[in-house]
Design a protein around this nucleic acid. Structure first.
Length: 273
DNA sequence: ACTTCGACCTGTTGGC
DNA sequence: TGCCAACAGGTCGAAG
């Protein structure tokens, strides 16, 4: 479910609801997420005030009185702001009860997500300090990308998904952006030309911006913090469409595997050179 | 320094 | 209908 647009959508939904509230109680039902939730997690969070929320890559950051909570949704994580108590389901692993009666509930069937309390500034945190540029910032431009692809033999798609280079570009949007830019996902990264780099940067920004505007993708079951589904899946050009005709030229879209992730592309519109 | 691969989990889907 | 295999939006850290 979660790529950058989904996390951004959740952030925007939660911002006004959570900001300025105090954490009254924390209930952890399952500690075994990507990393074990620390024994003192509840204690660390209780009585903290949520001063602000932000996002770095796919991490949602809750700025607290004198520490911070990092939340990553992994593959199947979900955050909801409940206005009334609801019996927890099997995958409702964490509840955070707030002074405005809202319950922030973390749900995650595959448990690839993470909740981590940090005492140090975000920029120094081990999970965040090696992250690359934000794709929607001006730091991410054609010359930056060209600099990064130098001497890299891996495919351009796996490179885009390397968050040490640029954060928040997951499998869906990498496929979509490469299609928009007419670049083959398996093209060796170092072969990227100046115009291709410009097209790709533009395509990534456009794809992400559009997805955010539409409330994130609803590939299978994405819902925002209020339980409202996104609508971006209707706009997907290639992801999930292997074997179907290209919307631009009609050729059959092809599936391949790059760095253990499924890629879909149009062999006509997205040639290697 | 770069690249590949295994690992972490459960739920859904499609074929037989 | 049932069973089983394949597959799924992420990313870390070890091995090559």
């Amino acid at each position: 479910m979660p790529e950058l647009p989904e996390v951004e959508t959740i952030l925007r939904g939660l911002q006004s609801v959570l900001t300025g509230t105090d954490i009254l109680k924390v209930v952890v039902r399952c500690r075994k997420l990507r990393w074990l939730i620390a024994d003192d997690f509840e204690e660390q969070l209780t009585h903290q005030r949520i001063l602000d929320l932000s996002r770095r890559g796919k991490y949602l950051l809750l700025h607290l009185s004198n520490k911070a909570l990092l939340i990553h949704l992994g593959m199947s994580g979900r955050l909801q702001a409940l206005t009334r108590a609801k019996d927890p389901g099997r995958h409702d692993h964490v509840d955070i009860l707030l002074s405005n009666q809202i319950i922030l509930r973390y749900t995650d069937p595959r448990r690839f997500g993470a909740l981590v309390v940090s005492d140090i500034p975000f920029s120094a945190h081990p999970l965040l300090k090696h992250l690359g540029v934000e794709p929607l910032s001006t730091d991410f431009d054609a010359s930056y990308l060209l600099q990064q692809v130098k001497n890299r033999r891996i495919g351009i798609k796996p490179l885009l998904m390397n968050h040490q280079i640029v954060v928040g570009v997951g499998n869906i949007y990498a496929n979509e952006a490469l299609f928009l830019a007419n670049i083959n996902p398996g093209m060796p990264a170092h072969c990227l030309t100046i115009p291709q780099s410009q097209r790709l940067v533009n395509a990534i920004k456009q794809t992400l911006t559009q997805a955010i505007a539409q409330g994130g993708t609803t590939l299978k079951d994405f819902v925002d913090s209020k339980g409202i589904p996104g609508y971006f899946s209707q706009a997907l050009q290639v992801y999930g469409r292997a074997g179907k005709p290209c919307y631009v030229c009609g050729q059959t879209l092809v599936r391949c595997e790059l760095a253990q992730r499924t890629s879909v592309y149009c062999p006509n519109c997205q040639q290697m050179a």
